[in-house]
Amino acid sequence: MNNTLSESSATATKAIPLSIDDLTVAYHRKPVIWDVSLDLPAGSLVGVVGPNGAGKSTLLKAVMDLIPRASGRIKVFGESYADNRGRVGYVPQRESVDWDFPVDALDVVTMGLYREIGWCFPVRKKHRQAAMEALRRVGMADLANRQISQLSGGQQQRTFLARALVQDADLYLMDEPFAAVDASTERAIVDVLRDMRARGKTAVVIHHDLQTVAEYFDYVVLLNMRVVAHGSVKDVFTPENLQKTYGGRLTLLDEVTEAMRHQRRKL
């Protein structure tokens, strides 16, 4: 175990976990991201911070090929995302699924293993044990058999986190895991994140609470349609940069975007 661990962390340090080059996404009427280029350091906790509509979720979805991108190259550990899916774990926003669905917490976590289990093969005991272990790590072991709508918001979020954990990925993409969760869930998530870092994994976390950024993360990306700044929290998380991120938008860019959309629709 230790051996494989150090091995995987060795490869993780060799290749950049996530490298985005000239990424531009323009879709429907939603916010767009322009020209994002990033290289994220391995083994760090990366906070993505920016105002509403800054394209934070769009960035993650574009990385995972969930939405078409207008331009740009994305490398995950030096290869394309499709080749390295197994090394990426995704924690979507809580609103993205129907919580009335007839599955329990354990089922949801097991879904993280479906790819490893393979087509048409049933879920076996060892998979359920692995899922149970992941639930234990987020402090939900005794709620494993609850139907998911009967979990509190924070517990649902932890279930999603456990689903990502069970994949044993090297890069985790998390879409607002701290949104509207209780204090104990927040603590549980932070513990898990630190544990990940200790094992040499990388987590990219969309975050909205500026007060905790410095405490939780060691690397930060300030995003507002484009990357305003990125780097270690110490260097980058400064009042001026925040002012640039949250302060006035580039109105002319907005205008030309609007003009493009309008032309495309009307003409």
Partner: peptide, 29 residues
């Protein structure tokens, strides 16, 4: 100057925008 875009990407972006830039927007710029 304003959006701090890297030098080597300026051309591509401007190439996209130029088609949608009317006289008014030009004057604003």
């Amino acid at each position: 100057s304003q959006a701090m875009v890297d030098g080597n990407r300026l051309h591509g972006l401007a190439e996209r925008f130029e088609h949608f830039t009317g006289r008014e927007l030009r004057e604003q710029l």
